[in-house]
């Protein structure tokens, strides 16, 4: 699948190119609101990944890959869980249990909790994004 599904269709290509950033922005929104409203890392990651899948469908696989290189994907895949795990370890170091967000650490517990949960969500989002895209590329004939 080296070529686009839709050939050289200008409308599709343009719309896709236009829409992709907005999809990604929406993904970020879902990500950052994860700890107070429906949403979170998983959903955000998938939403952002869908923008790259859209690009691959509209512009062809190579062009999509060009925008999301393996050299970026690979560290992202690894660093997401690392963020998750290291935040858990941070909680231990701060004197709590693993992943115990509600601890007083420089800030009051509520604030720390919000920061840490967001960070964890970001970590999850990064991983899901990178993994879904990688799986798609792999299936599409990487």
């Amino acid at each position: 699948m080296s070529e686009s599904l839709f050939g050289e269709d200008v409308i599709v290509r343009t719309i896709a190119r236009l829409v992709a950033p907005f999809i990604q922005l929406f993904g970020l929104y879902v990500l950052m609101h994860g700890h107070v409203s429906p949403g979170g890392g998983f959903q955000a990651g998938v939403i952002i990944a869908s923008s790259f899948i859209l690009l691959a469908l509209a512009l062809g696989l190579p062009e999509s890959k060009e925008r999301f290189k393996k050299t970026i994907r690979l560290p992202m895949e690894s660093s997401g869980p690392l963020i998750f795990a290291l935040i858990g370890v941070t909680c231990i170091l701060a004197g709590g249990y693993y992943l115990q967000y509600g601890i007083a650490f420089l800030f009051p517990p509520a604030v720390v909790s919000a920061i840490l949960i967001s960070a964890v969500e970001i970590g999850i989002g990064i991983t899901v994004l990178a993994m879904i895209v990688t799986i798609f590329y792999a299936m599409a004939g990487d």
Binding site: L74, E77, S78, S79, P81, L82, A85, G88, Y97, Y98
Partner: peptide, 25 residues
């Protein structure tokens, strides 16, 4: 809490953390 009381999570974390670091390195 001493560090020893965290051992249950540590034994799980060590291999998992390694698993995340390995692809990058």
């Amino acid at each position: 809490m001493t560090w020893a009381s965290h051992l249950p999570i540590i034994v799980v974390l060590i291999p998992l953390l390694t698993a995340y670091i390995t692809p990058m390195l």
